[in-house]
């Protein structure tokens, strides 16, 4: 089953399976000592967008980093080792879950502070243009980061200079426990703000991986042509708590019914439903992928746990260059 559409589903299943297993281990072992923000339920945004980029394009993300990292092709073993704080981690145990990086595949970095990688992605895309390269940059952030001033500043500058950047807002309706209604005025939207700044903006069903992929291909092409930045506002929903492996339906800020309705609209189920006529064996394939990826993540966890921690004698390495200390 090698169609592009099937591959998108497979990529989502991989991220879902990896994160579910990681969450279980995170909860049961208490050995991944790093604040971790799972993307479970939001896989379509990362997969749909990253699949529209080339390996030369750079992708940045915010704190909910695992899904964009994996969707861009980031090394799974290096991710897992990073969560366990091991030297073999993608940031050698210095960065943790919120500071993922895999330069070999164009995952240029993720950051913990809201909105940071919005301006950074604009800067990288600006540098690509300045160097005469045809590359673009993509930045993933949530509706929470869209509250930040740097978002408005970045939209403006990208529009003024037609920077080849694609802003991807994963709107999951909540900034931790604060709903959009207390943060954004009624009648406004993230894509509306972008349009007002002169950025081509679209609102897309973020749980429809095929729609996201099509919109992302269009956005990437638009940016790469030099015709200016694009913002995609992708409506999606986080199933777990803001941070950590648990659920939060009893926290009082969102109802069980609301969570259930979004879970019923699971991006993997929806994609499989849409593909079933074309690929009658899709359900069996999804099950097979789940089994394959469970094995992959369990093996990665076993290996990561056996790996050495960083040497404390190298605590300061990287704070400055050796000659600059």
């Amino acid at each position: 089953m090698a169609s592009t559409r099937a591959r998108l589903i497979r990529d989502m299943v991989r991220i879902r399976t990896v994160e579910e297993v990681l969450a279980d281990h995170y909860r049961d072992e208490q050995e991944m000592r790093t604040p971790t923000h799972f993307s479970i339920g939001q896989e379509a945004t990362a997969v749909g967008v990253c699949s529209a980029t080339t390996v030369e394009d750079w992708v940045y993300s915010g704190h909910r980093s695992h899904a964009p990292y994996l969707a861009k092709g980031g090394d799974l073993e290096a991710l897992v080792a990073e969560l366990y704080g091991k030297e073999a981690g993608c940031a050698h145990g210095r960065g943790g879950s919120m500071h993922m990086i895999d330069q070999s595949v164009g995952f240029a970095g993720s950051a913990a502070i809201l909105g940071e990688m919005i301006s950074v992605a604009v800067g990288s895309a600006w540098a690509f243009v300045r160097a005469g390269e045809q590359r673009i940059a993509v930045t993933f952030f949530g509706d929470g980061a869209a509250d930040e001033g740097v978002f408005a500043e970045s939209l403006n500058f990208a529009a003024v200079h037609r920077i080849p950047v694609v802003f991807v807002c994963e709107n999951n309706l909540y900034s931790i426990s604060s709903p959009l209604s207390v943060r954004h005025a009624e009648g406004t939207s993230v894509h509306g703000r972008a349009a007002a700044a002169g950025v081509r903006a679209r609102s897309v069903d973020g749980n429809d991986v095929f729609a996201v992929h099509a919109a992302a291909r269009d956005a990437v092409e638009h940016a790469r042509r030099g015709t200016g930045p694009v913002l995609l506002e992708l409506a999606t929903y986080r199933w777990r708590a803001h941070v950590g492996p648990g659920t939060d339906h009893d926290h009082g800020y969102r109802s069980k019914e609301e969570i259930d309705s979004w879970m019923a609209g699971c991006p993997i189920l929806r994609a499989a439903d849409a593909l079933r006529a074309e690929e009658p064996d899709i359900d069996a394939a999804v099950e097979a992928w789940r089994a394959e990826f469970r094995q992959e993540i369990h093996a990665a966890i076993d290996r990561a746990k056996a790996l050495p921690f960083p040497d404390t004698a190298r605590l300061l390495d990287g704070a400055y260059l050796p000659a600059a200390h």
């Binding site: 919005i118 301006s119 800067g123 895309a125 600006w126 740097v150």
Partner: peptide, 26 residues
């Protein structure tokens, strides 16, 4: 003006642009 660039009044984003540009080799 290609190499000496008048910026909008956006110190936060400008410092972030600089980080991203430097990460990309500028």
């Amino acid at each position: 003006r290609r190499r000496v660039i008048d910026m909008p009044n956006a110190e936060n984003a400008t410092a972030g642009f600089a980080v991203g540009a430097a990460a990309a080799g500028a």
